[in-house]
Computed example of a mutant assay.
Amino acid sequence: MNQIQFLQVGKDDAKEIAALTGELLQEIMQKTGQAAFCFDEHETVQRLREFIAEGHYRVIAAKIDRQFIGFASLYPSYALYAEGHFGTLAEFYVKPEYRRKGVGKMLIQKVVDYGCTQGWKRLEVTTPSLPEFDQTLAFYQREGFEITGGRKLKRLLETA
């Protein structure tokens, strides 16, 4: 395997990261058998560019040569239970052909390093549905994440 680069991506890389996001969401829906996401690549590119421009959303990507092979997106969060400022890992994806080769482990370390520079007390991540994603849970546990209980819930809101 060629040399892997890790970089914090900017707005110019939004199309490539949006495509990886589509792969991630498709994999989740395929494994769970649920159409849980509405994905529009063009809208995702625009949204990602806005998030990056606002300065509150970071994407750290893994790249070999000119091809993006994985990414992690994260943003700052605040909560009393978490003792203040912490990071939320919103999306994490490595292309299937690069899994079990250390790419995810290195990418998580880059995320941890970034979080430390931000003064975050912790990182939080929610896995997709279990048992379909037991291997994902096991990966995060190997990388030092602990189960804190509960389930992720959502409620869609109507905007004015």
Results as ranks from 00 to 15, higher is better:
M1V: 05
I4C: 12
Q5K: 14
Q5M: 12
F6S: 10
L7R: 11
Q8I: 15
Q8D: 03
Q8R: 14
V9Q: 02
G10W: 03
G10N: 09
K11G: 01
D12R: 06
D13A: 14
D13Y: 01
D13C: 06
K15S: 15
K15A: 15
E16G: 10
I17Y: 04
A18M: 04
A18W: 03
A18F: 03
L20G: 06
G22E: 13
E23G: 00
E23R: 12
L24W: 07
Q26R: 13
E27R: 06
I28Q: 03
I28H: 11
Q30M: 07
T32N: 06
G33W: 11
G33S: 10
Q34P: 00
Q34D: 03
F39T: 05
E41C: 06
H42T: 12
H42R: 08
H42L: 11
T44L: 03
V45Q: 06
Q46M: 11
L48Y: 15
L48E: 07
R49A: 04
I52R: 01
I52K: 01
A53R: 15
E54W: 09
E54T: 02
E54G: 13
G55M: 01
H56K: 15
I60S: 04
A62R: 03
D65I: 02
D65K: 14
D65T: 11
R66E: 13
G70D: 08
G70S: 04
F71D: 01
F71S: 04
A72D: 07
A72Q: 05
S73E: 00
L74F: 14
L74H: 05
L74G: 05
P76H: 06
S77G: 09
S77V: 05
Y78W: 14
Y78Q: 10
Y78I: 10
Y78F: 15
Y81N: 06
Y81T: 08
A82N: 11
E83S: 12
E83V: 11
G84I: 12
H85R: 14
H85W: 14
F86L: 06
F86Q: 01
G87L: 13
T88D: 09
L89A: 09
A90G: 00
A90C: 00
E91K: 04
E91F: 07
F92W: 10
V94H: 03
Y98A: 02
R100T: 13
K101V: 00
G102T: 03
G102D: 01
G102M: 01
K105F: 04
M106D: 10
Q109W: 04
Q109R: 15
V111F: 05
D113W: 02
Y114H: 12
G115Y: 03
C116Y: 09
T117V: 06
Q118P: 01
Q118R: 14
Q118T: 08
G119I: 07
W120N: 02
W120C: 02
L123I: 13
V125C: 10
T126E: 15
T126R: 00
T127Q: 06
P128N: 08
P128C: 08
L130I: 15
P131L: 13
P131M: 10
E132N: 09
F133M: 04
D134S: 14
Q135Y: 04
L137I: 00
L137D: 09
R142C: 10
E143T: 04
E146A: 11
G149S: 08
G150D: 10
G150K: 07
R151S: 06
L153C: 09
R155W: 10
L156Q: 09
T159I: 12
